[in-house]
Simulated assay, not measured.
Amino acid sequence: MPNRPAHRHAPRTASEQFRRTSFGRIALLCLFLCLLLQPAGPALAERPCLTVGVERIDYPPYGSFRQGGYEGFARDLLDSFGIEHGYTMVYVALPVKRLYQEFLDTRTLDLKFPDCEEWNRSKRKGIKIFYSVPVCEYTDGILVKPENLGKGMEAIKTLGVIAGLKPWLLVPPVDKDAMKVSENVSVSGLLGKGIRDRVDGVYTNLMVASHLLEERGYKDKLVFDPDLPHATGHYHLSTIDHPLILREFDEFMKTRTELVDSIRRKHGIDR
């Protein structure tokens, strides 16, 4: 298993001690899962374990944490990469804020997905992070009720967002002092707020919103307003300590296009 950097300073407060103890428990849990999931016998030493930090939210078709397990496009893709290169992939699902802490601060995770260097730039400052080739494209935008389509940002007094995410990267930028932000830990919860008029708009991934609305029988209850600010980019796999593994992943994405495309088609994700 890849080495983890040691902490540089001893805890100074009780709260810091608690946080670091919690981080240590996660690291021990990851180690236990690695040993549990690896095959017995000589193959054990040949299959290093990689911990992949993922978001503990329902985010179909990209990746969802459901019934205690991680599933979706990202799981199938990364599992296929792991099998081909002899890695055991262990998925550590965490709330968005905690995920950034584990990946950037305490370094208990080998990889993170999804990631993008444009997200939370202030937290990344001074840290050398390596990013893979683009894995898939995304569009984040604002969904409103059909009757509010075309009314502009002036009609968005309260915007619903996932806890830990900020909509200030929209193009053109949103004036964060001109409206309130209502956070929720799940996209489904945000969509429910939009349907029940508890927020004026919902900022989220459009494909995820479409999947969840149709899944719950609320198709067309909320619609994307293309005239409102939105953001388009690519999801990447990222790492701090393992650039060589990322290079292997890039090669996998370039040379195993038929396999990758079949996984895309399975989950309805276009190239």
Rank of each mutant, 00 (worst) to 15 (best):
G152D: 06
D200K: 08
K125Q: 15
V174E: 01
G160F: 06
P146T: 02
L190A: 00
G126D: 15
V181A: 00
G192T: 04
G201L: 09
S122P: 00
Y131C: 04
V133E: 13
V187D: 08
V174Q: 01
L170A: 15
D175G: 04
K166C: 07
K128E: 14
N148L: 06
G141E: 03
D177P: 00
P167M: 11
E147M: 03
K166F: 04
C136D: 08
E183P: 02
G192F: 02
F130T: 04
P172E: 09
L190H: 01
L149V: 10
D177F: 06
G201C: 11
V202A: 10
I127W: 03
S132W: 15
K180W: 00
A209N: 06
S132A: 09
L169E: 10
S186C: 04
A163T: 14
V181P: 00
L159F: 12
K151E: 12
K123F: 07
N148E: 07
T158K: 15
N184Y: 09
S188L: 08
K123G: 00
S182A: 14
K166H: 03
G126Q: 11
G152F: 07
V135S: 02
I162T: 12
A178M: 01
V135F: 03
R121Q: 15
R198F: 09
K125E: 15
S210W: 05
V144Y: 07
P173A: 10
P167F: 13
